[in-house]
Simulated assay, not measured.
Amino acid sequence: MPRPWAIISSGCRMSPRCQASIRRNSVATRWRSKVFWSGNSTMNESMSTRCKSPARAVSLSFLLLAPLLLQAQSRTVLDGAYSKEQAARGEMEYGANCAKCHEGADVDGPPLTGDPFIDRWREDNLGNLFTFISTRMPRDNAGKLSPSVYRDLLAYLLAANDYPAGPKELAEDAIEITQLVGKDGPKPLPTNALVLVSGCLAAGANNTWNLTNAAEPARSREGDRTTPAELKRSSARPAGTLTFRLQNLDDLGPGVKPEAHKGQKVQAKGVLIRQSNNDRINVTSLEQVGAACP
Rank of each mutant, 00 (worst) to 15 (best):
S220A: 03
A260W: 06
Y82N: 02
L145A: 02
G39R: 05
E172F: 08
F36I: 06
I8V: 14
S220H: 02
E85G: 12
S33G: 14
S134K: 02
P294R: 00
P16K: 04
P164F: 03
D79P: 09
D184S: 14
R245V: 05
P164N: 09
Q86Y: 12
V195Q: 00
R122P: 00
S41A: 15
I273A: 10
N192P: 03
A215D: 05
A229I: 03
M92Q: 15
R75K: 15
T131A: 15
G240W: 01
A159D: 11
C200A: 08
H261D: 14
R13G: 08
D184N: 08
A105M: 10
V197T: 01
I22F: 05
A292I: 13
S234E: 06
A203S: 15
P147Y: 01
F244G: 04
K52I: 12
N97V: 07
V27M: 15
P254M: 10
R24N: 14
T135N: 11
G290N: 00
L158I: 01
P116I: 03
L157M: 07
R237T: 11
L194D: 01
W209S: 06
I8P: 06
F117Q: 02
S48Y: 08
S46D: 12
V266D: 01
N192T: 10
R280Q: 13
P217I: 03
N128R: 08
L272A: 01
R225L: 06
D224I: 10
N282S: 13
G255Y: 08
G104N: 03
W5V: 12
N141R: 11
E103T: 06
V271L: 11
L112I: 06
E259H: 08
L246Q: 09
V195S: 03
T135C: 12
L68H: 14
P258D: 00
M47D: 09
K34Y: 10
D224T: 15
S41Y: 13
R280L: 11
L154H: 08
G104P: 01
T191R: 07
S53A: 15
S41W: 14
Q247I: 12
N125K: 05
P16N: 09
V77M: 05
C51E: 02
A105I: 11
P138F: 09
R13P: 05
A268D: 00
E176L: 10
E222Q: 13
S148D: 11
V289E: 00
S83P: 00
L153V: 09
N25I: 09
P217L: 03
G240C: 02
V77G: 12
G166T: 07
L153W: 04
L180I: 08
Y156P: 02
A292D: 14
K187Q: 12
L196P: 05
E93I: 12
E93P: 01
E216K: 04
A214P: 02
P4V: 08
A174C: 05
N97W: 13
G204V: 06
